[in-house]
Nucleic acid binder design. Structure first.
Lengths: 155, 155
DNA sequence: AAGGCTGAGTTCCAATTGGCAACTCTGGGA
DNA sequence: TCCCAGAGTTGCCAATTGGAACTCAGCCTT
């Protein structure tokens, strides 16, 4: 079977983009990763329209990437707050890849504005492509290929 | 300085998303990675509107992620074809992360529809987060932090 | 020389989506 | 009872998208 016959309806990249590929979604998740959990905090920091933020949060909760919890500040009524679900943690790979690409190719000469640290040892975290042969590989050495779950267009 | 004071105007994630964050851009790049190079091929396989494909290709060429080359089929006039530039190869990390997320969390029980192979040895390629301490780390063990290039909102 | 064919875009219209700012809604405090 | 703050919602208008039809250029046939 050839690539052009692959039915993209069951492609994992497309499926993931379906989840997090909307214009602001990944940036919202990154704000939550970084420790912002409240509507106004995120809206103000990101400069996103409240309408869109509201809709994206709803989608993310529905997709089970964020969950709503209640918090209550002294002398205030309880309000909702957004936290990552276990499923959301693996989106870190995508964010880290985007971060690393930007640092490498669009980099501010002043150095990286954001770093990723390992909460265990405090070290610096990088994304790597690693082959089952044990070597790290470059992007240009990787070729996509059809796997066992591939479905053709005609079937 | 706190995260909420970070000026996102110089954030690498946002910068990268500016380049490849539009609705179809990453899928187009993946088609080119997989070996489709021509307008109609990509349009047909992706099911994208020709208007949008035309605009995205123009943006990608302008961003120096794709380059136009000419090809000439026997008995036809020469036409343009799109190829990855060196800068584009590192987008593979992002695509691989999206692929791996989809396979892990949204997976078809029939198995992965697409696999990444190392063109050197034919092995299977995965994305990893690796700490400078040498260990592989999970997404939940990573914390974003301000780096040397961080710029505050007020400055 | 005239007409056909093919791949690569453009163009037009209707339907969505996005930004901005103002408005609402809720419950605790004064 | 009135005020306040945070979390959305709504109205209006501009920009973007999808779909299908249309244009354009050059090679080949007749």
């Amino acid at each position: 079977m050839e690539w052009r016959e692959l039915d993209l309806g069951n492609c994992s990249v497309a499926a993931t983009l379906n989840l997090v590929g909307e214009r602001w979604t990944l940036l919202i998740l990154r704000e939550v990763f970084a420790g912002l959990h409240r509507f106004d905090e995120i809206a103000d920091h990101l400069g996103i329209s409240r309408r869109v933020l509201s809709e994206r949060l709803r989608q993310l909760v529905e997709a089970d990437l964020l969950e709503r919890r209640s918090y209550q500040e002294a002398g205030q009524r309880s309000r909702p707050e957004y936290h990552l679900t276990p499923r959301a943690h693996d989106v870190q790979w995508v964010l880290a890849a985007l971060l690393q690409y930007g640092d490498t190719h669009l980099g501010d000469p002043a150095g990286a504005p954001v770093l990723l640290h390992h909460s265990g040892c405090g070290g610096h975290v990088r994304v790597e492509l690693r082959c089952s042969c044990g070597h790290e590989v470059a992007g240009s050495e990787v070729k996509p290929d059809l796997g066992p779950g591939a479905v053709t267009l005609s079937s």
